[in-house]
Nucleic acid binder design. Sequence first.
RNA 1: GGAGACGUAGCGAAGCGGCCGUAACGCGGCGCACUCGAAAUGCGUUUACCGGCUAAUACCCGGUACGAGGGUUCGAAUCCCUCCGUCUCCGCCA
Length: 426
Amino acid sequence: MLDLKFVRENPEIVKQNIRNKFQDAKLPLVDEVIALDEESRKTKKEADDLRADRNRISKQIGALMGQGKREEAEAVKKQVTEAQAHLAELENRERELEEKIRKIMLTIPNIIDPSVPIGRNDTENVEVQRYGEPVVPDFEIPYHTEIMERFNGIDLDSARRVAGNGFYYLMGDIARLHSAVIAYARDFMIGRGFTYCVPPFMIRSDVVTGVMSFAEMDAMMYKIEGEDLYLIGTSEHSMIGKFIDTIIPEEELPKTLTSYSPCFRKEKGAHGIEERGVYRIHQFEKQEMIVVCRPEESPMWFDKLWQNTVDLFRSLDIPVRTLECCSGDLADLKVKSVDVEAWSPRQKKYFEVGSCSNLGDAQARRLRIRVNGADGKKYFAHTLNNTVVAPPRMLIAFLENNLQADGTVRIPKALQPYMGGMTELK
RNA sequence: GGAGACGUAGCGAAGCGGCCGUAACGCGGCGCACUCGAAAUGCGUUUACCGGCUAAUACCCGGUACGAGGGUUCGAAUCCCUCCGUCUCCGCCA
């Protein structure tokens, strides 16, 4: 959410930003919200004046009552009663306007970083850099579920009966590999100075609207029936939500946290759930990293964050690349975002395994996450998040890249301690 | 889930429907004095948000906020209703 005053004073910047994101349908909202704001401030001033009168007169009445001058008090009372109806009207209008303004403000996209490439949609995202050689082996790499099945590692049929499409049973060494990757990723991030955290897996609606746009909420979140609770789509939600309504002393920044959680996603409106694998699913586990920092430090943290993911994948011998999201592919709250993509020797292309985002102060505004500056001034923090690793999707990359010609799967050295010393799956 | 108690500033804690909301009192924080310095002591100071004014997130003026939302009233921390949360006991459970 942008600062209303900023929108009022810089309507052209806000409009150009909307054009860059190809959401031209939202253009009229800018003028609309500015007009509403104008009226809202006028109404508020008028109501404030009436309230000031009422406060003053009520005090008079109190004083007169105290002196036992009932008659005079009654006379003064009449004055207030007359203004009451008008005030009630104004107060209704105030509420109405504020709601309308907030509703619009929540849908106006955040100002994107000047470095973001302008493009229509995800086909115009820009490759930034490759890490590691994308190897195509001279033997055929089967579909990932087939590799898993060779080790009796997956049961999608039972999962379909029990929960439906988009769920899975992982079993045996594959399940162990799944947990090993999470544990390894956790320690990897702890090693980089992040604080490990296990957060709530459900959050309230006010946190939901604070961390994501309405469009995302509708497409992603599962609601618990009869409760004001939603299953998290990522631990980012509960981790950023952790700071709702707080004023953080500046010296406590940056907050650098790495969290584990299961993630639940409807994937409504996405490309749909694949019946055949664990690429797009309703439930997965994820090690995440988040940062809450001072505004001037967020670009620096952004680069550090995605680098962590690159390093982690490289430590497991998986080639990756970074892909910068263009303006049209950037979610409304985001200032800048890069995806980390892993190499698929089967498809001979890269596919998304992580996403790193700088949200600027968008989430902080919605959640009222403020910083108490050293000079006593208060400002909104910046928030960032990035995937460390999200199995089982990550296992696709892992299995494809570490599969050997003889059908065994090599376990990179870094992961061996988490697999009881195993050097390969066979 | 049942019974009871509670929710007021950074923390603890007072508070009669008006003289109690920057809000008593205590602790903490900050500033000053004393000191070579510190402790102790003394004096002063101390919330957030919105609107107006403004270069200003400074001052000043006004408004709002006593868990949240409603209601009664000229006026609500105080009375009424709903919800949320915390604590204690019981039940249940990993």
